[in-house]
Design a protein around this nucleic acid. Structure first.
Length: 405
RNA sequence: CGGGAAGUGGCGCAAUGGCUAGCGCACCUGGUUUGGGACCAGGGGGCUGCAGGUUCGAGUCCUGUCUUCCCGACCA
């Protein structure tokens, strides 16, 4: 698209009180706008990144037979009472309808919805296993929203739920989810610094696992085993002070951002909703469940924290960049430049390569500064200077025009 | 929820209790300029978060309240 058509503008300055790097970059670059504390609007550029992250997540989940659906964000009180979480889940937004006086919640998580719903499609062991997921806005009444889009009161999350006839089958699927998550973080360019982390399992299993991306601004403290490239969350370090995989006692303390977590729920929720199936012996045991989350919007913020050089220079990983190419024409009053640039733009478009085309009549410094903020990793510059050599610059490298396929 | 800081045109900031609340960015008009956020000239846009109070006079002082950011606690 033409950069002039973007609804957003870049900014030179934002409030000094906003210290979070991801918020600074994303607001200055016109990817997001804050609506209130912990609540952000995603503008076209930011929304493209979100959708690109979602696409990677969808592609990887489809390889582990998970099916996408969409659950409601508005929940009845009764379902949360069944699990006793109406009172105990302090981040749950609760309110009363003005008209019907019905008590409602905004979904913080969806075990309370998916578990009773699953009864409609699970009757027999032959219906198992199955896995469903959604990508949806979650609401959590955080006491304090912070760190830009890393901890909001409203955020986008992928939540996956799996249903099994026995624990072994859950264990097997749990491991395939770990593999899928690993591929997701690799594709996002943070595979090397995102570690499978042992965390508390709550009441229903010894450990859960988190995926933690190393970053000094992270809220979490983890202890890393550098030989296994896994970590242990501080919350269980008392009971697990050595590497749970190799026994290495020399774990290194680091800060990190939690970008995913996976839980073996076992029968915690199937019991609450009496979700059962008929097995081969004609018995009716409880369904075994697992749940698996990835914070989509938090991942976007994490990528900024990792890939921004400072608060005015960002380079997105290619896989999630809002456009494949940033085509920048300088000296646009030169008809040769503007014609060649337009030709290039049309050529990329015809090949389904997405291009942000900056053919505005602006001085070069403006274009470069904005491009540095927007952070598209492939930058092609065409100017009188480059055309004198019958070439363009691709990420600083002079490249003959006719070598561009 | 406790502590700290701050709320002034769309954005970022300034203004000893005292003239008509300034400046930069952005915006509009005209002109120049074009390899790192250019420049000249002109122009539009404000009940200083809200509500009270003190005062001859309040953006400025006081009280309350709302909001935002930071630290802490919290984080199925």
């Amino acid at each position: 698209m033409y950069q002039a058509d973007l609804i957003s503008k870049t900014r030179k300055h934002i409030s000094q009180s906003e210290e979070s790097l991801n918020a600074q970059i994303l607001i200055k670059a016109g990817f997001i706008e804050q609506v209130m504390a912990g609540v952000y609007a995603y503008l076209p550029l930011g929304y493209k990144v979100l959708k690109n992250i979602e696409t990677i997540v969808r592609e990887e989940l489809s390889t582990i037979s998970a099916q996408e659906l969409l659950l409601p964000a508005l929940h009845p009180k009764s379902m949360w009472e069944k699990t006793d979480r109406w009172e105990t889940l302090d981040v749950l937004y609760r309110f009363t309808s003005h008209y019907t006086k019905t008590e409602l919640a905004l979904g913080s998580t969806h075990e309370e919805i998916i578990t009773p719903l699953a009864q409609t499609f699970i009757q027999s062991y032959q219906d198992l296993p199955l896995a469903v997921y959604q990508i949806q806005t979650k609401f959590r009444d955080e006491k304090r929203a912070k760190s830009g889009i890393l901890r909001g009161r409203e955020f986008i999350m992928k939540d996956l739920y799996s249903f099994h006839s026995n624990s072994e089958d859950l264990d097997t699927y749990y491991d395939t989810v770990i593999q899928a998550y690993t591929r997701i973080y690799q594709r996002l360019g943070i595979g090397d610094i995102t570690l499978k982390t042992y965390a508390s399992g709550g009441s229903f299993s010894k450990y859960s696992h988190e995926f933690q991306t190393l970053s000094d601004i992270g809220e979490d403290t983890i202890f890393v085993c550098e030989s296994c490239n896994i970590a242990v969350n501080q919350e269980i370090i008392e009971e697990q002070s050595i590497c749970p995989e190799c026994g290495n006692p020399h774990l290194i303390e680091k800060k990190s951002i939690e970008v995913g977590n996976i839980f073996k729920l076992q029968t915690k929720y199937s019991e609450a909703f009496d979700l059962r199936f008929t097995n081969e012996q004609g018995e009716n045991p409880l369904v075994i469940m697992g749940c698996y989350g990835i914070g989509i919007s938090r991942l976007m913020g994490t990528l900024v924290e990792i890939f921004a050089h400072d608060n005015s220079h960002m380079i997105w990983p290619k896989a999630v960049s809002p456009f494949n190419i940033h085509l920048i024409a300088l000296n646009t009053d030169n008809s040769d430049v503007s014609q060649q640039a337009e030709k290039l733009y049309q050529k990329f478009k015809s090949q389904n390569i997405s291009v942000l085309f900056d053919n505005r009549n602006e001085r070069p410094g403006v274009k470069f500064a904005e491009a540095d903020l927007i952070g598209i990793p492939q930058r092609i510059i065409i100017s009188t200077k480059s055309l004198a050599q019958n070439a363009v610059e691709i990420n600083g490298v002079i490249t003959p025009l006719d070598s561009i396929k």
